[in-house]
Nucleic acid binder design. Structure first.
Lengths: 228, 228
DNA sequence: CGCCGGAATCTGTGATCACATATGTCAACG
DNA sequence: CGTTGACATATGTGATCACAGATTCCGGCG
C-alpha cells in the first residue's frame, strides 16, 4: 500500500503561478515600496510581472480578503491606509495576543527551542550591524517564539495583524528602533531560560511598545495619511 | 461642485455577481447544509447557482483566505474541519476578544443603544419560541453589542472567528442551547444599564461557555471528524 | 474664465476555452 | 484475488475576449 518511502527524494512543490504572483505582490507591499493609498491595477501589475491578468486578479482578491487592499469605488483597488486609531487598536490587540503566546511559549519551550531562538537572535543582531533588512530577521524571531505556544489559530490572527501594519513598519524604516529590540529580545531569552512567563511577556510588550512609538512619532499627526 | 443632495434618493447598490455568489455559498455553509470535510467543485457550484465558473472561483478563493475552506491536494477545495483543540482555542480567543469588546461597549453605550439591544433581544426571544433560525438573531445581538465598542479591527477578528465556528454551530443545532442564552443576554442588558463592565463581561463569557459546552458534548469524542 | 457634454481610453467583471493533471474505471496479467 | 497499466473523465489553472461603466481629456457654449 505504502509507496517506497525513500528519503533520497524530496517532495516536488508544485507552486501555482497564482501563489507566486501573490507572494511577489505582497513582498513589494510589505517592503514599503508602494505607499499606502496607492491605486493598483490588474493590467499594470500583470505587465510588470509578465503574466496574464488572471493570477493577478486572484492575488488582489486575496489581499482584499486579508484587508491589505480596499476597494473604494466600484472598480478600484487601493492600498489600505491605516489610521492612527486603527494602528493603536492593532497595537493593543498585539499586546494581548502576542503577550499570551509568549507566556505559553515560555511554558512549552524545550532546551532545543531556546537554542534555535538564540541562533535567530544572532542572525538578527548581525543583520542589524550590516544594515540591511533586519526587519525580516526580527519577524523570524517573533514568530519562531510564538510558534512554540502551539496555538495555530492565534498565530494566524497575529500574522494577519503583522501584515496589516507591515507597510507602515517598512515605510518608516525605524532606523534606531532596531537597537532597542536587541535588548528586549535578550530579555525574552533570559526569561525563557528561567521559565519566567510574566517577565517574557513584559519584555515582548516593551518591544512592541517601543517599535510602535517610533512609528507613531513619524506618522503624520492628523488622522489618516493625506493620500495625494 | 456638490451634486444635489436630495434625501429622496437612496444610493444604488451595484452588487457584483461575485459578491452575490460569495454570500450565497457562505450562507449555505453557515447554515450547516454542507458537512465539514465535504469537497466542493467550481463547476458543480456554478451549475447549481446558474452562473459561469468565474464568480465561483473568486468566491472559493475568498473563502480559502478566510480559512473556511482548505486545499488538500493540488486541486481540491474542501470545507475545513475544526479539530477539538482548534475549537477550544477559538473559544479561548473569543472569551478574551469578545469579553474586552463587551467591557468597552458597556462604557460607551448610550441610552439609545441599550434600547436597540433590548429590541433585538425581544426579536431573539420570539424567534426562539417560534422555533426557526434564532441563531441569526443571536448573532445580531452579539454584534450589535460589540459594535458599540468602536473597535473595527477587533470586530473583524471576532467576525472571522464566528465564521470559522459557524458550520459547527449550525450543524449541531444546539436545540436547548438557546434557552440558556436568553438569561445571559438579559444579564448583559442589566449590566449595561448599571454600567457594570465586569458583570457584562462575565455574562457574555457564560453565554459563550454554555454554547461551546453544547457543541463539545455533541462533537465526536476523538480528534477530527472522520470525514467519510 | 467657468461649466457642461461627448468622445476616447482605461478598468474590473464575467464568460469561454485550452491544457496539465488528478481521479476513477476496468480489463489483463500474475 | 490482488496488482498494474491504460484509457476516460473530471477539475483547477491560466489565457483571451467581450462588455458595462468609470475616468479623463478636450472642445464648445454661456
Amino acid at each position: 500500500m505504502e509507496a517506497q518511502t525513500n528519503k533520497a527524494f524530496r517532495r516536488i512543490s508544485h507552486e501555482t503561478l497564482n501563489e507566486q504572483v501573490y507572494q511577489e505582490i505582497r513582498r513589494v507591499i510589505m517592503a514599503g515600496l508602494l505607499q499606502p493609498g496607492s491605486v493598483v491595477t490588474i493590467r499594470g501589475l500583470a505587465a510588470q510581472l509578465g503574466t496574464s491578468t488572471m493570477p493577478v486578479r486572484d492575488a488582489l482578491r486575496r489581499l482584499l480578503a486579508e484587508r491589505i487592499l480596499v476597494m473604494d469605488g466600484p472598480r478600484r483597488y487601493r492600498l489600505r491606509v491605516l489610521s492612527r486609531g486603527e494602528f493603536e487598536e492593532i497595537l493593543c490587540l498585539r499586546l494581548s495576543l502576542e503577550g499570551e503566546l509568549t507566556e505559553l511559549a515560555t511554558l512549552c519551550a524545550a532546551q532545543q527551542d531556546i537554542e534555535t531562538l538564540n541562533q535567530i537572535q544572532r542572525r538578527f543582531e548581525s543583520s542589524l550591524k550590516s544594515g540591511d533588512n533586519f526587519l525580516e530577521a526580527n519577524q523570524d524571531f517573533h514568530f519562531a517564539l510564538y510558534a512554540l505556544a502551539q496555538r495555530p489559530i492565534t498565530l494566524s490572527l497575529v500574522r494577519s495583524l503583522w501584515m496589516q501594519v507591515g507597510p507602515l513598519l517598512n515605510h518608516y524604516r525605524m532606523q534606531q528602533g532596531g537597537e532597542l529590540a536587541v535588548e528586549h529580545h535578550r530579555a525574552v531569552l533570559a526569561a525563557l531560560k528561567k521559565r519566567n512567563a510574566p517577565a517574557a511577556r513584559a519584555a515582548i510588550a516593551a518591544d512592541l511598545n517601543d517599535a510602535a512609538r517610533v512609528i507613531l512619532d513619524e506618522l503624520p499627526a492628523g488622522a489618516d495619511d493625506p493620500l495625494q
